[in-house]
Write a protein that binds this DNA or RNA. Sequence first.
DNA 1: GTCAAAGCTTGAGTTACTGAAGCACTCGGC
DNA 2: GCCGAGTGCTTCAGTAACTCAAGCTTTGAC
Lengths: 151, 151
Amino acid sequence: MGSISTTTVPTNAELMEALAAVGAAYFQDFAAAAARHGLSSSQAKALGSVQEPVPMRALAGRLGCDASNVTGIVDRLETLGLANREAAAGDRRVKIVVITAEGREILNRIRGEMARTHQAFEAMTDEQRIALHSICRQVLPVLAGRTVAPQ
Amino acid sequence: MGSISTTTVPTNAELMEALAAVGAAYFQDFAAAAARHGLSSSQAKALGSVQEPVPMRALAGRLGCDASNVTGIVDRLETLGLANREAAAGDRRVKIVVITAEGREILNRIRGEMARTHQAFEAMTDEQRIALHSICRQVLPVLAGRTVAPQ
DNA sequence: GTCAAAGCTTGAGTTACTGAAGCACTCGGC
DNA sequence: GCCGAGTGCTTCAGTAACTCAAGCTTTGAC
């Protein structure tokens, strides 16, 4: 490892402040891009969570909200033609949310139109990209509550 | 800086996926801690945005939502005794939101209780902390739309 | 003084979200 | 085969978040 040079190690509070600011800005970029396509941020977030088919219950887990809430969100996605409910083979209680081709296209378009996020990426060096990616992957299991079993 | 070793540079899509996952997990940790103190995530986010006094209009800008929305959020914070509206000297149209001592205490308590976030910080080396902090500070102006005029 | 514009609130209407029932289905045991 | 506990989804209140369109007060320029 190289020199830490003159830079001092940031405190937890400083890191938290910086992370929160970046997170909020990223989210606003996301919400704005989604709104341009007539989607609320909840709907767009749900769409991004069903790139592979997911049961309603599991989707609620991913979104961190109550299952009854997901009913309404998926209702609206279905009305818009962006996702469908399919019966699960083997358990007729379960309904599986499946993204449609149109849903996938809109999702890609939204991600492509997050201009500020892309600008931010372009402002980073290769070393920074590698560092950020590796930090994210290392930290995610802890942050998401899967303290053990790192695949 | 040292060697990039075998690690390859992540694509924009990979970075975006990783960032989104970390952002979502961070937000859930935040929302859960706020809920333990009877605050919604919007209320807690607003509370964190008024550490210094802020006019209603500017607060709407920080939260990325309509000004009329802020009226309701601040109403509830005021009912809870966590913030107050004060008249601005010099312009009687403006109302300035000021956090109370109790508000500040609850905010600190929420931040202190974000257990998973703190765990994630503790799992990082000093080099990683420095790198993350520096990347965040560098990227924030771009991501927040202040492309020119740093600080 | 007048008038456009800015800052905040109110009102109507939709979405997001929670908690408590409720219905349909599964699976274990008897 | 049937009964009962448990699971998955929906429905139904009820509240909060959010937007848009008016509305009111104040400001500042002319």
